[in-house]
Amino acid sequence: MYLDEFEYYAPKTADETFELAGRLGSQAKVLAGGTDLILNMKQSLLKPQCLIDINGVKEFQGLIYEAGKGAVIGAATKISELEHSAVLRDKYFALHQAARELGSTQVRAMATIGGNICNASPAAETSSPLVALGTKVVINSAAGERELPLEDFIIGNRKTALEQGELLVKFLLPEPAPQTASCYTNIGLRNAMEIDAVNMAVNLTLEADNRTVKVLRLVMGSVAPRPLVSVEVPALLVGQALNSNLIEKAAAAAAGEAQPISDIRATAEYRREAVFVLSRRVLQEAFNAAQEV
């Protein structure tokens, strides 16, 4: 349980970081909170020759919200900061909820949102809400900057769209439309310290009538190699005045879309069942919340 040896770099600026990332290429891993990376290295699942510690780079940290424009979250922002952010609670409730549910107090104090995403675990807590909220990621390298919708960034189980020398530096969350609410839910065996068997987030905007769905995104975690954006649920619900029958149908559709596998945490069959129940609950919850916005 000791680490293999590696070179350690602690850049102070973004440019320095990009230069290092470009120069060291695939030999290097980026160290943010370390709760996944160091564990993987201890278990010899990863053996990087170099670590680039980005905790000293101010540009990568913090949460800025500007009314009408949305939020920008630095990749190295701690989960605990998100958990306690009033803006997130008010504007991006699903992400607030997911941040609260992630790991333990200690893990939240260490782990970063960028790390949670770049680790690209299918069970990651923050990916479902971020995708549901329409988040874009900003990717930087010495060569320049590009933007991608988050769902295109996570391309598979533990795989991202990062090219050699590139870093994920920030998340762009659009300003929620009026009459919008988002919710997150998850299920695991215990009520803490879990890797979710299933998690799910929904972002829902109602028409002025306060009943009809205008826009809806439902994203499922841990039931596919990457966050699964439901196609059928919006197809069923957008333009409809929501009621419990419709929600039930949508939940069944979500369960049909899920592509779960069986593993040590749950069987595929159970996961599909859980998707049905959780999507029904989370849709209802989001609907109620959106009506009260």
Partner: peptide, 15 residues
């Protein structure tokens, strides 16, 4: 002031 897991923290990052 923040509670952290010292088993997953590299000492060199604590300068």
């Amino acid at each position: 002031g923040a509670p952290v897991l010292s088993c997953l923290t590299l000492a060199i990052t604590c300068q």
